[in-house]
Write a protein that binds this DNA or RNA. Structure first.
Lengths: 226, 226
DNA sequence: AACTTCTGTTAGAAGTTCTAACACAAGTTA
DNA sequence: TAACTTGTGTTAGAACTTCTAACAGAAGTT
């Protein structure tokens, strides 16, 4: 119960609009989100909503920010709840949290990782929220390498080390940044196609494929196949 | 020079419309494709184009079909041109062909593999074109396993074997379907994020990551990390 | 030459985003 | 309490969009 009465009412109005926008997103995709239609469903006229969102893009930008925030909460919880478990289990727990989030709201997953909205540029606060998810990936994968000897650095390892250092990720085993990146691309590779329905009638269980890819990240020093 | 004069003119008109649609796609995304605007640019009024496309979705459906056809030509060429080279080189050649196609026209890649269009259902001819790409993946990966001993089948291998058999892919090493599937998800995982600009300011070379993932498919029996 | 098919036109309905001008309620200050 | 400022809603309307209907005329066929 923070802010003035007016501020609270304003937030409630925005939340209701975004709630309806998410329904439209789920049903008709990004293109199906209509400021006018949202207003109508809320019992006000179209232009009223422009008091709350500068324009349609502004509404979409908030939906994206909220999704990143929600995802960060989820994967951080997945990483934290398994903090003291062995690295392998931790990777699996974390990976499953990521997957469950994606499958529970595919349209939101695609809002973040699907076709980018033309003209969209992430504002600073959204970038910070996205970093939280990145950091969770890194922290979980760092566990896997905690007791492994340092190997030689590839060019890619070097490039990524520069990036993690600039992000203030602290001292990491040199293989961690690349492994975390591959974790992300491999899991996304499966999830993206799964939520897009591209596996359609192939008749296999995507959960098994996902598990196999998770396992591949733990296996060898270089995240191999199985 | 096939068909009547009228049929040829009709095809030329459709081609011009689709050419302009692809420009709009590249510039403003799927939502930026406007039948009206295309017509205007062609020097006719909006409704004229409805003689050539039943509606906007019909135009998009054709764009998707064309993209699958183009991709199939590309990856088949990549697979064929390297037919007699060693399996490892073949995988790399094929993978690079796939990547170059995606990077040359990111919007088309995303049309096929990005956020699906709500309400879109692939017509039969498009499904057949998509199968050509799938088959190319399988044939290239089959080479890798040509001289490897058969290993035991996992549940996933079994599920996928049923699928490849029903597709008439002939006798395959039992590990091939899963490896081909992982090839697809891993390469897509990298490409999808690269063309979406998600790697933004991370300052690493995606080509190196892509190569590493390609290499991971050859490595061990189960496609491991490096 | 007559008939049919194809391709284009204008008119218009119903939707969209978004701005401008106005009305009035709510909160703040004198 | 009265006056003022801010916030929130309204209607009107411009400029788009998709798509249908009705009509005109060119192209191809018989």
């Amino acid at each position: 119960m923070v802010g003035t009465r007016r501020e609270r009412y304003r937030e409630e109005t925005k939340d209701e609009a975004k709630r309806i926008a998410l329904e439209q997103l789920a049903e008709l995709g990004v293109g199906g989100i209509s400021v006018n239609a949202i207003a109508k469903r809320m019992g006000v006229t179209g232009p009223a909503l422009y008091r709350y969102f500068k324009n349609r893009d502004d509404l979409l930008t908030e939906l994206i920010r909220d999704a990143w925030s929600d995802l960060a909460d989820t994967v951080e919880a997945g990483a934290t709840s398994s903090r003291s478990r062995p690295p392998r289990e931790r990777v699996h727990g974390f990976g499953q949290a990521f997957r469950e989030w994606a499958l529970a709201q595919p349209h939101r997953y695609l809002l973040l990782f699907g076709t980018p909205l033309p003209g969209y540029h992430a504002p600073q606060d959204t970038i910070a929220l996205a970093h939280r998810t990145t950091s969770a990936f890194i922290s979980v994968l760092a566990d896997v390498y905690a007791d492994r000897p340092a190997a030689e650095l590839s060019t890619l390892d070097g490039q990524l080390a520069a990036w993690t250092r600039s992000r203030g990720e602290g001292d990491l085993h040199p293989a961690v940044p690349l492994t975390a990146l591959r974790a992300f691309t491999r899991l996304h590779g499966v999830l993206s196609l799964e939520v897009s329905g591209q596996f359609g009638p192939m008749g296999f269980d995507p959960a098994l494929l996902y598990r196999a890819e998770l396992e591949s990240l733990i296996g060898v020093s270089d995240p191999g196949p199985d």
